[in-house]
Design a protein around this nucleic acid. Structure first.
Length: 262
DNA sequence: ATGCCGTTTCGTAAACGA
């Protein structure tokens, strides 16, 4: 049976509830990882989403960051922290498992640190966070359950993932240290779902609000669905929901959806 | 380009984002 798993950096769930519910009704994904909900758990518009038939698990934070999982099936074994640094209070990680008639899928919604500006403490925080992510990703491979690591990675993996790669060479999203760790995730066995189904350049998931980036198609691909080998074997297709960027009051990111025959 | 735009906060300017 086909399970659709999606990721969307919503850039403020309360400001975006109209677009979010519109897209959930239109697309009907089985499970969605949200990032940048910018809300505490108590402020999350849970009822508006539950009304559409979704279970909701949130890991919120005041003001910024914050991740969530929305699932038509019950969410089991929810974990809200990335291990490796008990002092890290940023809400950037939530994982949960859904059961299907034929098995299960473990889904992580992750919001990887931006890391800018390079040269401040923000960049080593990003890199050490990625090292922690790699540790957790490797541990998840030890289970029999297929895994989907979905989210805003804040990494431009390849030059072809940016309209103007030369403009990003000094940016944390395109640093060799960021890109090599994204490759390390693939070397563990995780597959970039988008590249697996279509290796074309020029497929973007983010367009800045500034300087007419959307109108000029000055975009980057930084929202990724990374699949463990068992999940990648089930991959049927990927959709970048580009049309949502043209809606009223859009997020600067668009959803990415993978279909898995599990 | 210390710019552009958008969301959030014990707000009315500043932090954060990419």
């Amino acid at each position: 049976m086909t399970i659709t798993v999606a990721t969307w950096n919503i850039n403020g769930v309360k400001a975006r509830i109209e677009a979010l519910t519109r897209w959930l009704e239109e697309c009907g994904p089985d499970i969605v990882g949200l990032q940048e909900i910018k809300s505490v758990d108590e402020g999350f518009p849970r009822e508006d989403i539950e009304r559409l038939g979704y279970n909701v698990a949130t890991h919120g934070q005041k003001g910024f960051n914050g991740v969530a999982l929305l699932s038509k099936r019950p969410l089991e074994d929810v974990v809200e922290r990335l291990p490796g640094d008990d002092g890290d209070e940023h809400a950037r990680w939530i994982e949960g498992t859904i059961s299907t008639e034929t098995g299960a899928l473990r889904v992580v919604s992750l919001y990887l640190p931006n890391g800018n500006p390079v040269g401040t403490e923000k960049f080593p925080y990003k890199i050490s966070w990625m090292d922690r992510m790699l540790e957790r990703a490797e541990a998840l491979l030890g289970d029999d359950t297929p895994v989907a690591l979905v989210g805003d990675y804040n990494v431009i993996p390849m030059p072809g993932d940016a309209r103007h790669p030369e403009r990003w060479v000094d940016d944390a999203l395109f640093q060799p240290e960021s890109r090599s760790r994204h490759r390390a995730l693939q070397n563990l066995g995780f597959v970039d779902a988008q590249r697996a189904v279509d290796d074309a350049d020029g497929i973007y998931t983010f367009w800045d609000y500034q300087a007419g980036a959307w109108q000029k198609n000055n975009g980057i691909r930084i929202d990724h669905i990374m699949l463990s080998p068992l999940a990648a074997d089930a991959l049927e297709g990927v959709s970048v929901e580009k049309h949502t960027r043209g809606w009223q009051k859009p997020s600067d990111h668009v959803p990415v959806v993978a279909s898995l025959d599990l």
